[in-house]
Design a binder for these strands. Structure first.
Length: 878
RNA sequence: GGGCGGUUAGCUCAGUUGGUUAGAGCACCACGUUGACAUCGUGGGGGUCGUUGGUUCGAGUCCAAUAUCGCCCACCA
């Protein structure tokens, strides 16, 4: 095609798919083990298969692809491993909800196997959609290596890891208070719980003292927001030394008051007065109770006929309530801690469906709500109810079922974190893993420093089933007999079976995966596999090495691991990043990556996070359809600064007239919206009714990608102009000692921008990189150099030199832009290759067939002339 | 309660170690289409840099206080 026939718009719709196909065909994304090259590896943060990707993913993956493409051009063997995450509870909940909505059945109607099958079908559908989205964005992943956190390779890694941790005694069975969803009948994690303030009451209840001595109170008063839990009380606590505690608080508050600002002072002063008031009125009573506690006095627990001890424990705060607190170890996290400390019995009063069990006595079978009403009435009748305050209560609800959470004592598997967490702290503190921006390292270290054991079991069906088999024994004699059996098995299958006896009568066996014969044998001995599955983060934690074939010492693992950088968003620094570091260290002895970049989050026009449920999410494909993938990528890159989240007002694009209709809090959840401009109605993602669905659906986009789209077009036309003026171009070295000012200036700028770009991308300063190349392309190359070149190309003497400078500059500009805008640069590259393959002044060699495989430009330090750049700036501003 | 971040033009954001007249994109106003590009060009309007105080010859930038918005963590008998 001759240059004149090139259209004046880049047809990204037609060209992008075609170019991507060429890259795939040529294996441009495939990384091979190559001892002559240094590897550069990134593993994708595997998107959840719960749904399609949104703009946040588009940002995340664009930033990774830029690194991969840059390093590929720089001569590294660049590997980007793609994949998806099974996302445990989230995916199962989505599928279960659909079952309920569309077929009105629950998972129990289907059964485990059938449900899991349904979820696999869902996974196949969304994985395909997700991978397709990544391809449309231009992501240059090595698709041959695509993994899924629940596939066989990852399962092998999970089982090997679990087995190893078990053998190291880093996995144990323990009781733990979990957030129990009584509707779904599963524990849910803290992140799956939301809090809502509801109106409630604060009931003050009298617990009679058993045979009070003279001068002693007849009752101890406790206060609670959940009176029904008294059925599970096993103690009442009072502070062991209330006088000292109040003193301490008083000193502390006095100090704070002295340093307090005018604004805070009154509140602190008030607290101080309250403490002093308590000292006067309540302290003697509390001291007496503390004495009674050490004497081992008992209280009568109303409605149960039980007596419980009055105990001394620091958990009871003398400055709060009555100074006494009821202890319900099986239904309150703090009370649980007290229960452990004080060796109190733990009485679980609930069934898994949330109704009271046999420990509820006459209240058995009632829901907690019904029991509460009845208990309060009964207490009142017995004159044990002291006073009732109205109070707002922050009540935990399950994200999934929207029902109230009951704290519930359940058996759980834990990973002991002490040693593992320390290794991950050390890795960051001694810079083996560098986190950018550096401020995020603090949260990482703080979280790990708590070294809280990791509860890894989930009462789900979708996930890696825990590779532990348990057998209960009637007596320790039976146990001893089986121990022998196990020991024998261990000898027979050396290194593949490890047994722990949790107590005298329960034995747990963990098997290394992949031996069906052994599993059969163990099960024939009466061992039953744990039905729980592992927390989804367990398999994600292995991602950087499991994707490369660990536990096999594969060549790929040896070559590509540790990976170079991990690019992710800040909300999973602890959940995911920290755990990858500690698991990587445990399994391979090496950190999983040397750098972590935490990128901003994309918010909507109101500063709210985008989500499907709010209706403010944006499908990257909508943006790609309207503006092109390059515009999407450049636009996101342009916005990626170190400190700020990205606020992005969102519009519906009217399918009738293409006008952009602002998305507002009012219209974003409507099934149909009327266009401001043409007045016609269109449907949205919420359309369900037939007449709504019949309307044309509006894509959701943001006009903030216009700048980037225009930039693509500018680049396209600059290239077009250049090509139109290269007809009689002859490649040759330009004589740098005899150049016009504007030529020297452009070459200087080119090398400066090259340096800036390379440094900025390597430091994850994406916005700086985008701005540098945008300014260079638009202002320097187009507005200045091309305009000056026009008259110079009419002169015979200067024409050849200008052509060579132009060809070279465009060539280098395309390369510099390629990591950010891969499609348009590849399209231009191929057009110009067909006409003038030799452009690069440094080599004077024909350009590579694809720009994706071209060398990253090397700055020419001798070309950089700060003085000329400044002079020229003055010259053009005149 | 602890930690982190933001506050600069109508909107969304830059502003490096303090240094002339605080920038960009979008939006707005005027003019321009035989021009590589109207997804463009030329010109223009618009900012007491949240507030107060301090350091300095000089503060958007450094320090202190304060207001306000947002995020994370902990806690809430």
């Amino acid at each position: 095609m001759s240059a004149e026939n090139i259209p004046n718009r880049f047809d990204y719709v037609a060209r992008s798919g075609q170019i991507y196909g060429q890259w795939l065909e040529e294996g441009c994304f495939d990384a091979e083990i190559n001892p002559d090259k240094k590897p550069f590896t990134i593993v994708i943060p595997p998107p959840n298969v719960t749904g399609a990707l949104h703009l946040g993913h588009a940002l995340n993956n664009t930033l990774q692809d830029i690194q991969i493409r840059l390093h590929r051009m720089m001569g590294y063997e660049a590997l980007w491993i793609p994949g998806t995450d099974h996302a445990g509870i989230a995916t199962q909940a989505v599928v279960e909800r659909r079952l309920k909505e569309q077929e009105n059945i629950t998972r129990h109607d289907l059964g485990r196997e059938a449900l899991v099958q349904r979820i696999w079908a869902w996974k196949d559908q969304y994985e395909k959609r997700i991978l397709d989205q990544l391809k449309r964005m231009g992501c240059s992943c090595d698709w041959r290596r695509t993994r899924f956190t629940l596939d066989d390779q990852c399962a092998t890694a999970v089982q090997a890891t679990f087995f190893d941790l078990f053998r190291q005694d880093l996995i144990y069975r323990g009781k733990r208070l979990v957030n129990w969803d009584t509707f779904l009948q599963t524990a849910v994690s803290d992140d799956e719980v939301f809090h809502e303030t509801v109106k409630g009451h604060f009931w003050h209840i009298r617990y009679p003292v058993v045979s009070p001595k003279a001068g002693e109170p007849k009752f101890v008063i406790i206060a609670t927001t959940r009176p029904e839990t008294l059925l599970g009380d096993t103690a009442v606590a009072v502070h062991p030394d209330p006088a000292a505690e109040l003193d301490r608080l008083q000193v502390q508050l006095t100090e704070r008051l002295a340093n307090a600002s005018e604004k805070d002072a009154p509140a602190i002063g008030q607290q101080l007065e309250q403490i002093q008031e308590r000292r006067r009125t309540m302290l003697p009573g509390l001291i007496q109770l503390a004495k009674m506690a050490t004497d081992g006095r008992m209280l009568e627990l109303p409605l149960t006929g039980r007596t419980i001890p009055l105990i001394a424990d620091v958990w009871a705060k003398p400055e709060m309530g009555s100074g006494c607190v009821k202890i319900t170890p099986a239904h309150d996290p703090n009370d649980y801690e007290v229960g452990l400390r004080q060796s109190l019995p733990m009485i679980n009063i609930l069934n898994t469906d949330g109704r009271l069990n046999e420990h509820g006595g006459s209240y058995q079978g009632l829901s907690t709500q019904a029991a509460r009403t009845k208990i309060v009435a009964d207490l009142e009748a017995m004159e044990l109810l002291d006073q009732v305050e109205d109070r707002e209560i922050d009540l935990a609800h399950s994200d999934r079922s929207k029902t109230a959470i009951e704290p519930f004592l359940a058996d759980q598997w834990f990973v002991r974190m002490d040693k593992l967490a320390q290794s991950a702290i050390d890795a960051v503190e001694n810079d083996q893993v560098k986190i950018f921006p550096t401020r995020y390292a603090k949260g990482y270290v703080d979280w790990l420093s708590e070294k809280r054991d990791w509860p890894v079991g989930r009462q789900l069906w979708w996930g890696h089933q825990i590779p532990i088999w348990t057998q209960e024994y009637a007596s320790s004699k039976d146990l001893a007999a089986s121990f022998k059996l196990i020991n024998r098995l261990e000898g027979e299958y050396a290194g593949e079976i490890v047994a722990n006896a949790e107590s005298e009568t329960i034995l747990h066996v963990s098997l290394r995966g992949g031996n069906e014969e052994l599993v059969t044998k163990i099960e024939s001995l009466g061992f039953v596999r744990q039905s729980d599955v592992l927390d989804t983060w367990f398999s994600s934690a292995l991602w950087p090495h499991s994707t490369l074939g660990w536990p096999e010492q594969t060549d790929a693992l040896n070559y590509f691991y540790p990976t170079n950088t991990l690019i992710t968003s800040r909300d999973i620094i602890t959940l995911w990043v920290a755990r990858m570091v500690l698991m990587g260290l445990n399994n391979t002895g090496q950190v999983p990556f040397s750098e972590v970049f935490i990128h901003p989050k994309i918010l909507d026009g109101y500063g709210e996070t985008m989500s499907k449920s709010k209706g403010n999410g944006v499908d990257p494909l909508d943006v790609i359809d309207k503006f092109g993938a390059d515009a999407l990528r450049f636009g996101l890159c342009w916005l990626t600064t170190e400190t700020q989240d990205v606020r992005m007002p969102v519009q519906f694009e009217c399918p009738h007239c293409e006008a952009l209709v602002n998305q507002t809090k009012q219209n974003r959840q409507l099934p149909r919206v009327k266009c401001d401009k043409c007045g016609k109605e269109f449907s949205t993602q919420w359309a369900e009714k037939a007449d709504d669905k019949a309307l044309a659906k509006a894509p959701v986009v943001s006009e903030r990608f216009e700048t980037a789209r225009n930039f693509c077009n500018k680049l396209w036309n600059a290239a077009r102009f250049t090509m139109m003026n290269l007809e009689d171009y002859t490649p040759a070295k330009i004589d740098r000692t005899n150049l016009a000012l504007e030529d020297r200036w452009l070459l200087s700028r080119l090398s400066s921008v090259n340096q800036t770009m390379t440094a900025a991308i390597k430091k994850y300063q994406y916005a700086d990189a985008a701005r540098a190349i945008y300014d260079f392309a638009w202002d320097d190359f187009c507005s200045n150099y091309l305009e000056i070149a026009k008259p110079r190309m009419q002169e015979e003497q200067s024409r050849p030199v200008v052509q060579r400078v132009l060809a070279h500059a465009l060539d280098q500009l395309l390369r510099l832009l390629h990591p950010i805008m891969p499609f348009v640069t590849e399209a231009i590259w191929q057009e110009i290759n067909a006409l003038h393959p030799v452009r690069d002044q440094q080599t004077l060699q024909p350009a590579s067939k694809f720009i994706i495989k071209a060398d990253w430009p090397t700055p020419v330090p001798s070309d950089v002339d700060v003085e000329i750049e400044q002079q020229f700036l003055l010259f053009t501003s005149l």
